[in-house]
Amino acid sequence: MSLDDVLGLFNYWMVIVLMMTGLYIVVSRGNLVKKIVGLNIFQTSVFLLYISMGKVSGGTAPILTGKPEVYSNPLPHVLILTAIVVGVATTALGLALVVRIKNAYGSIEEDEIQTMDLVAESEAETTGHRR
């Protein structure tokens, strides 16, 4: 692997580090708001991956100027505009669920919620069988 390869791929590697940090936040943290933040970081980093591949060296933003110019690839931009919207839609729904969960459970920590669910389950079973 040459220095050229390293320089040519470094951008992608950094983006991968960002993506994985986001994913790690989602899977390792039990706080529901933090999970949503993690999902945001994960998705935003994927946006960077797409936009990085659309970049052309020496290129410019894909808006026609009438002069002959090198333009960066507009297609990833379009895809990511869509993906950003999907991302914010998911975030809004996720947060709405967090608010409802807080109202219903009094907690937004996954572990505490799971414990409450397990208790509810075993109670339902024991009272059920006793009857």
Partner: peptide
């Protein structure tokens, strides 16, 4: 990275 439309949206959203 020349993605001005995307940047605009990302900043706003």
């Amino acid at each position: 990275l020349d993605a001005v439309d995307v940047a605009f949206t990302e900043a706003a959203v």
